[in-house]
């Protein structure tokens, strides 16, 4: 890696972003299409306080096509983390037979899943 700090920064940031996507971030609209998420007061981002410690393990695979084997690195951790959290919640809710089909997993959605409420409203994005 040319600069590990830059790569790690991307991974930490994207992991936090992925966790927030799973648990809090959602653009909400009412039935008339009026946006309800209009400020950061309404948008459940993870702050430092809610972000867990992230351990990064690199598995480098140098490119045969570049001078030093270098590749680009980006916010990769945002992709698997929502799926990992959704699967974990689904596993925790196994006794209720719940299937997680929607994000973010707000307290209300988890409550609806646990109560096996078929009226669970899917959010519009």
């Amino acid at each position: 890696m040319i600069n590990p700090d830059v790569v790690n920064g991307q991974v930490y940031g994207s992991a936090a972003h992925g966790i927030a996507i799973a648990l809090g971030e959602g653009f909400m609209y009412n039935a008339e299409g009026q946006p309800l998420t209009i400020t950061y007061l309404d948008y459940g981002k993870c702050s430092t306080a809610e972000t867990p410690r992230v351990e990064v393990i690199h598995r480098p695979s140098p490119s045969p096509f570049t001078s030093l084997g270098q590749k680009a690195a980006g916010e990769g951790a945002a992709i698997p983390s929502p799926a990992a959290i959704a699967s974990a919640v689904e596993d925790a809710l196994k006794p209720f037979g719940a299937k997680v089909c929607d994000l973010p997993l707000t307290p209300e959605l988890v409550w609806r899943l646990a109560n096996h409420n078929p009226a669970t409203e899917r959010r519009s994005f």
Binding site: Y40, L41, D42, G44
Partner: peptide
């Protein structure tokens, strides 16, 4: 109280 973390409301 139960409150969302972002606002505390």
């Amino acid at each position: 109280k139960a409150a969302p973390r972002s606002s505390g409301f």
